[in-house]
């Protein structure tokens, strides 16, 4: 969406609890409150990126705004036809939620374009990802994505549904994240 130009102070709405970079596992059920994070370079514009396999893009943007205030730009990577493209600064799409090649390409593009921005990303969500992919491919996909967040000194939240995955899957994926918030699995 093209944001209003009214100047607002970019201060945190919550006390920051996360350092930078951070990759955080969060409970994606309901309307979770996201842990806030230290601000990146104060001079850099803030950018939200929502990667969505579901249809809750605006809910995730609202959650990011609650934690980090209003951004300078909002970017979406989603399945074709799932969002109104007019509502965001950029929208990149894949044909199918299981197209991890396309997803990783589109995410790489948007993070390259936002190389100089203060990036906050929400991945929605791991539970859906595992419906379309085996654990090993999902692990590599998430490993590449968390690596890009680290390289960009950004902050990313990865939603998952508690109780939806077996212990081996959870323990394997947990190693990718710096911390978890309200997500038992």
């Amino acid at each position: 969406m093209t944001r209003e130009t009214e100047e607002k102070p970019k201060e945190h709405l919550q006390d920051p609890t996360l350092g930078r970079p951070s990759n955080v596992l969060v409970d994606s059920t309901g309307s979770p409150r996201l842990p806030s994070a230290q601000r990146g370079d104060e001079a850099s514009p803030t950018a939200f990126v929502v990667v969505s396999l579901l249809s809750k893009t605006d809910d995730r943007i609202a959650a990011l705004e609650e934690a980090h205030g209003e951004p300078d730009s909002v970017h979406v990577v989603c399945v074709d036809g799932r969002v109104d493209e007019a509502g965001y600064d950029t929208v990149r799409t894949v044909n199918r939620p299981g197209d991890l090649t396309g997803l990783s390409m589109r995410i790489g593009e948007v993070l390259s374009d936002l190389h100089d921005d203060d990036v906050y990303l929400y991945f929605d969500d791991i539970t859906s990802l595992l419906q379309y992919s085996d654990l090993n491919t999902a692990y590599r996909f998430l490993n590449v994505l968390t690596g890009r967040i680290d390289a960009a000194d950004g902050v990313a939240y990865f939603g998952a549904t508690p109780g939806a995955h077996d212990e081996r899957t959870v323990n394997t994926l947990r190693s990718l994240f710096d911390t978890s918030s309200g997500a038992r699995s």
Partner: peptide
């Protein structure tokens, strides 16, 4: 690039790439 083939990263050739 074919769909759903492999997971790899991507850097487009734009300013500062």
């Amino acid at each position: 690039f074919p769909e759903d083939a492999y997971v790899l990263d991507h850097v487009p050739k734009r300013d500062g790439w």
